[in-house]
């Protein structure tokens, strides 16, 4: 099926189309949602390969639930963020006591000069390194609030906690990040002033 304006079709409508056998709907949903799932998983897990596996698994769960999806009850993106958060939590639990994790490779900006690219990469590596040191729930809350840019009520729905608990987690997470990154301030190119 060809869509005149695919961007105008809501996620849940695409999901219904997919459940009715429309293959193009699956392609549109993948293009729209999978990059966000991958970004969330990569920030939380700090490992690109694992994040890709989580993305595939989360999308598979979306395909499976498609025939039973009840329109208007929940947002597809919120549901997917929650599935991703749970899959990441499972992986972090399995990883406990475990091996060192690879840093997340950031997408490169081809237009930036080499020095700026290196600086940007160093900052992202430092942020990811600090995120990796946060407790799981704090990390999830900080990523969803400050990087994915979601509101506290939506995060509360995703993590299945109260809005107050989200506020507390993000505040503590942010303070911990500040302390973890303080020593690297000059190295990251931040000046006083």
């Amino acid at each position: 099926m060809a869509f005149d304006d695919p961007d105008a079709i809501p996620d849940d409508a695409l999901l219904v189309l997919y459940a009715n056998g429309d293959g193009e709907a699956a392609r549109l949903l993948t293009a729209r949602l999978a990059p966000r799932v991958l970004a969330q998983a990569a920030r939380i897990l700090g490992d690109r390969a694992e994040a890709e596996d989580v993305t595939q698994e989360a999308m598979l769960r979306l395909w499976r639930i498609a025939p039973d999806w009840r329109r208007g009850e929940a947002r597809v993106s919120t549901w997917l963020y929650r599935v991703t958060a749970n899959l990441c939590t499972d992986r972090l639990r399995r990883r406990r006591g475990g091996a060192a994790i690879d840093d997340v490779a950031e997408p490169e900006d081809p237009s930036a000069p080499v020095e700026e690219k290196l600086q940007a990469q160093a900052r992202m590596d430092a942020l990811q390194g600090a995120l990796n040191q946060l407790p799981d729930r704090q990390r999830q809350a900080v990523v969803l609030r400050h990087i994915e840019g979601l509101g506290n009520p939506e995060i509360a729905e995703i993590l299945e906690i109260s809005t107050e608990a989200v506020e507390s987690l993000t505040a503590r997470g942010k303070r911990a990040l500040g302390r973890l990154l303080a020593a690297r301030r000059e190295e990251l190119g931040y000046q006083d002033g």
Binding site: R27, T30, A31, R32, A34, P35, R36, L38, A39, R43, E106, P107, D109, A120, R123, M124, A126, L127, H146, I147, E148, G149, K174, R175, L177, G178, R179, L181, A182, A183, R185, L188, Y190
Partner: peptide, 27 residues
């Protein structure tokens, strides 16, 4: 000792931009 709020916000902003570039690229 802590990183100033503005620097932390700048870091978050850079991460958001990187993710947005990837998301806008779709597949």
């Amino acid at each position: 000792h802590t990183l100033p709020e503005t620097d932390l916000e700048a870091l978050f902003g850079a991460a958001r931009d990187a993710d947005r570039v990837a998301a806008e690229a779709g597949e």
